[in-house]
Write a protein that binds this DNA or RNA. Structure first.
Length: 795
DNA sequence: AGCACGCCGACT
DNA sequence: GTCGGCGTGCTC
């Protein structure tokens, strides 16, 4: 018997299966989808690999033996392996990279660097790999493997180790098992209505009956439960709860809401597609139209059919508010996957999914790979979000993966948004997607907010502050006087605190990257966000020696200071990269605002997503323009989406909301359509431009980025690449660039970019593969080339 | 990636 | 004559 194995070396030359012999002692243990250790190369260093096939061929060559199997149960299933094969054609990445992104990080980490026979492990490494709590410690990996280390060979061990790693998550839950004979003979005074009621109910339950104490307390009062326990009616059993189960604490279950006509129409259309091959659905619904309720009904239907469901949500809106809605409907069948979880927690969730315990997965982009079986529905909420495209290898788009998976499972795929991406909306027009619209608000009493656009130029020179026009200030004061809340959006991306000299204007920049260093007050250092450069905060200007070198706060910091000065009595919460760096800070800030511990929430993009604060009656956009002038053909689209989304935050409940947008471009179409909350109008206008400029959806795009330490070399190579591609592709294809990336240099590498725009190119894949081959040439050793199919960020 | 092989100039 | 630089090619 032999096995085909993909080795964990992400390189073109090793990106194919290698055959290994399955030794007697491992036969039966090795399955397709398992991870194994194999000796590789002349030195026989141990590498991790995935079994992608097992065959019974006649022994042709002498094969090496598989050294060890890491999983008793395969970590990848057939569907995932097939998925990786399909994706490889579109995504220019290595198979091993794809496979690794399909399993929880915990099963990947550590091995890359340390796997080598004879290599000595530091106590820390030994601890991380094998778990400090386990009785054995190994300084040498081969010794560890020989002794059949706990690592995922025996799963129980792993469990124990992880729990030990992270004690704070262990909780004991009380399980109560009914002792019927005690209950039947229990005397309860006739005056104790509630106790009698509880006894009645318990008597009617099917035996054997057990329940969580917390559940019972939800049903009856704490007093009644305490009484019953005291009378020894139950056998008490304490169970260690899985870490992730802590989600389910304190979430009361809720029932389904009644749907309006549009919603029920959407639900029935979508449900009819479950179990059939059907094109994806675009569910376009204005904010407040109840898209989530539609999702919940669809999932419910899928579950009733014995199927499962995946819900994708953008990372930033994966807030407790959001997940609670799913958990309260579907209880412990829900698994949550987001980046806030530790590797161990993600692993727990993954196991819940793999074992079939979880039937509904709510998660960010990478959750599209979860090993759910029998999927009935896949839902992608806020479909237009750029974060569904991974910006590093493998550069996949979750929507494309979802389409493939929906096909294999005959699942209904729903793309939902108030402001769909232009591409998606266009496909709905062409019939490639089925188009469902929700035009009414689910709560008919809630009114659309009134949106006012304020022209900054009218107040030039007469403003007291740079961020606030008198119109906006007045409105804020009015709302505060009425004890209502205000959300203020500072539309500015990734711009953070830096240090500048007042004398000569010198800005402290990274020596390796063309970007200013960011001030980190917590560590008292200046850090580069692109490389790991770090230095102490300067007290003297390195350029002119002056001492008047000052710290310049981020945009939000500045706006915060101004606002605090103008409205000293207002309680303001600031939310940006600086204040949310700490884990959990995001949630606690939002919670504080929700509890009305502050009057004004001032922040960047992150406040625009899916928050629902009923007491917010005013949303102010301080500067609508900053995202409008970016060198990206999607700049208008993004601005429109942001403005529409943030406007939806105003007045979601009974109180009517108001929105004020401050701008220098009040007549720009992205702003005027956003003012009217008119997505369809925006869509048609934008489509004309896209056609004229030959951009998606009229053209497909591929982005090629070249990086090299020598700027002259990249430029020359970029022109070589351009020439090569021109030779392979038809004259219809258009090329942009090479142009330097907006941050032209990071980690001492210069980056240049070429964009290909095309409609039909039969040889594109061949051409790009040829490009990759060419990259392998010795003369290009230092050249790094990345190919991005349908890039979402042109910068 | 990591290692060996092999070809070339420079050296005790 | 040999040491070591690096370009090339292979790893089941």
């Amino acid at each position: 018997m032999q096995a085909q194995i993909i080795i964990d070396i992400p390189l073109m030359q090793t990106d194919k299966p290698f055959s290994y012999h399955i030794p007697e002692r491992l036969s039966g243990l090795i399955q397709v989808g398992s991870r194994v250790h194999v000796p590789f190369g002349k030195a026989n260093r141990l590498l991790q690999g995935f079994v992608v096939g097992i065959s019974d061929e006649a022994e042709t060559d002498v094969l090496k033996d598989i050294r060890e199997v890491l999983d008793l149960e395969p970590v990848l299933n057939q569907e995932q392996l097939a998925l990786a094969d399909k994706m490889r054609h579109k995504i220019f990445s290595y198979k091993i990279t794809l496979l690794k992104s399909m399993i929880p990080n915990l099963l990947n980490s550590h091995y890359d660097k340390i796997l080598r026979p004879g290599k000595k492990l530091s106590p820390e490494e030994s601890e991380t790999i094998f778990g400090g709590a386990s009785e054995q410690r190994f300084s040498d990996l081969s010794e560890a493997v020989q002794k059949q280390l706990p690592y995922l060979i025996k799963e129980e061990k792993v469990e124990v180790d992880y729990l030990a790693q992270d004690k704070k998550h262990i909780k004991l839950i009380d399980y109560l098992t009914l002792k019927p004979e005690v209950l039947e003979t229990l005397d309860i005074s006739k005056r104790a209505k509630k106790r009698l009621e509880a006894k009645e109910w318990l008597l009617t339950q099917a035996r054997p009956f057990s329940i969580k104490a917390s559940e019972l307390r939800k049903r009856y009062s704490r007093e009644v439960v305490a009484f019953l326990i005291d009378k020894d009616v139950f056998q008490l059993q304490q169970v260690e709860m899985q870490r992730s189960s802590s989600y389910f604490e304190d979430i009361t279950s809720s029932s389904f809401l009644k749907l309006n006509r549009e919603q029920s129409h959407a639900v029935s259309e979508i449900c009819a597609a479950i179990g059939h091959q059907s094109p994806p659905f675009l569910l376009e619904g204005i904010t407040g139209s109840g898209k989530t309720e539609v999702y919940l009904h669809v999932i419910d239907q899928a579950l009733r059919m014995g199927k499962t469901a995946i819900v994708l949500v953008p990372e930033i809106s994966l807030t407790p508010q959001m997940t609670t809605r799913f958990i309260s409907r579907f209880g412990e069948q829900v698994a949550i996957m987001h980046s806030g979880l530790s590797d161990g927690e993600k692993f727990d969730e993954w196991r819940k999914i793999k074992s079939g315990q979880a039937k509904v997965v709510v998660g960010a982009r990478s959750a599209i790979f979860v090993p759910l079986e029998n999927i009935g529905a896949i839902i992608i909420d806020e479909e237009h979000e750029a974060s569904y495209k991974q910006e590093s290898n493998p550069r996949y788009h979750a929507r494309d993966v979802a389409i493939l998976r929906a096909e294999t499972h005959s699942a209904a795929l729903v793309l939902g948004s108030a402001t769909p991406s232009i591409e998606t909306r266009a496909r709905a027009s062409k019939g490639r997607y089925r188009f469902l619209q929700l035009k009414e608000r689910a709560n008919p009493h809630a009114q659309m907010p009134s949106v006012q656009v304020v022209d900054f130029r009218d107040y030039l020179g007469q403003q007291e502050s740079s961020n606030f026009t008198p119109v906006l200030l007045e409105k804020i004061q009015e709302k505060l006087a009425r004890k209502e809340q205000v959300v203020l959006l500072l539309n500015r991306r990734g711009y953070s605190s830096f240090v500048m000299c007042r004398e000569c204007g010198y800005v402290d920049e990274c020596p390796n990257c063309d970007i200013s260093l960011t001030l980190h007050m917590d560590t008292k250092t200046m850090n580069c966000h692109y490389c790991d450069f770090q230095k102490k905060i300067p007290h003297q200007c390195p350029s002119c020696g002056s001492e008047s070198i000052r710290y310049y706060g981020s945009g939000t910091q500045k706006a915060y200071d101004e606002l605090q000065e103008l409205l000293p009595e207002a309680r303001i919460l600031r939310m940006d990269v600086d204040t949310t760096r700490r884990k959990g800070a995001h949630e606690s800030l939002l919670k504080a605002f929700g509890n009305h511990e502050a009057d004004i929430l001032l922040g960047t993009q992150m406040i625009a997503k899916g928050l629902d604060f009923p007491n917010v009656t005013l949303v102010g956009v301080l500067n609508a323009d900053t995202s409008l002038n970016l060198p990206d053909f999607r700049a208008s689209e993004r601005t429109f989406q942001l403005l529409t989304q943030v406007s939806g935050r105003a007045g979601r409940a009974e109180k009517t909301g108001e929105v004020i947008i401050q701008t220098y471009n009040p007549n720009h179409y992205a702003i005027t359509f956003a003012q009217k909350q008119d997505f369809e109008g925006f869509y048609h206008y934008e489509m004309q431009l896209r056609q004229k400029m030959a951009y998606p959806p009229y053209y497909f795009t591929v982005g090629i980025t070249l990086s090299h330490e020598d700027e002259q070399v990249v430029i020359r190579k970029a022109y070589d690449v351009l020439k090569g591609l021109r030779g392979h592709l038809s004259s219809q294809a258009r090329f942009l660039g090479p142009t330097p990336k907006p941050i032209a240099r990071t980690r001492n590498q210069f980056h240049y970019q070429i964009i290909i725009k095309y409609r039909f190119e039969d040889h594109l894949e061949t051409a790009l593969n040829a490009l990759l081959e060419w990259t392998q040439n010795a003369e290009n050793r230092k050249l790094r080339v990345t190919i991005d199919n349908e890039p979402q960020n042109m910068m």
